[in-house]
Design a protein around this nucleic acid. Structure first.
Length: 186
DNA sequence: GCAATGATTTACT
DNA sequence: GTAAATCATTGCC
């Protein structure tokens, strides 16, 4: 299958990449269990705005993965309970990433359901749980085809992608209004 | 060392 | 709609 190469992630416009990520397939092989799903919702984050952990290009131990070259994963724990899966973009040092918010199961739905305990996958914490991703998968390359990777997936027309403000970052003030959330129209 | 807090989910009123 | 759960990371003392 067509694993997305490094160049897909290294563009300079994280928002454009986020939009292009809608409809892509994400594959994981975790605990020897393969699963696949289509990305149907994601959000862009950049060091240039307050919603991002790396706002102001401030590097910390937690967000170090975002400063890597595009094409690696950024997984972290939030609210002490939920793990979130991000795709790092841009070149090294620019700290931009895409948060995967919702998926549609393609392979291994029963596995996801049993991991989740509930058959819904719309929410960042649910996505990581369904796919079996956890913090130890932080800073992993996504362009090799090992453990976690993306493929070309479905080609989605622009007209079928909705833009809207991001969710859950009210503290980011005016930056919370940026239309950096992309959803597949169903 | 210690207090504050969050890119959320879930259940309850 | 509102609130509690729950802990690693952060920032300040």
């Amino acid at each position: 299958m067509d694993i997305l190469g490094r160049e897909f992630y290294q563009g300079e416009d994280v928002v454009a990449i986020a939009k292009a990520t809608i409809g892509k397939y994400i594959y994981t092989i975790i605990d020897d269990i393969p699963t696949a799903a289509m990305i149907i919702e994601c959000e862009a984050y950049s060091y240039k705005e307050k919603g991002c952990h790396a706002y102001g290009a401030k590097k910390t131990k937690r967000n170090a993965a975002m400063f890597e070259e595009g094409g690696v994963s950024y997984v972290y724990l939030c609210y002490g309970i939920h793990e979130m899966f991000n795709i790092v973009t841009n070149r090294g040092g620019y700290a931009e990433a895409i948060l995967v918010r919702a998926i549609k199961p393609i392979v291994g739905e029963d596995i996801m359901k049993s991991r989740r305990g509930s058959p819904s996958y719309n929410g960042p914490g649910k996505v990581t749980q369904a796919l079996g991703i956890h913090r130890s998968h932080n800073n992993m390359p996504l362009f090799i085809g090992n453990t976690i990777w993306l493929t070309e997936g479905k080609n989605i027309a622009d007209a079928n992608i909705l833009e809207s403000p991001r969710i859950g970052i009210d503290y980011a003030a005016e930056d919370a209004l940026l239309p950096w959330r992309f959803t597949l129209k169903s």
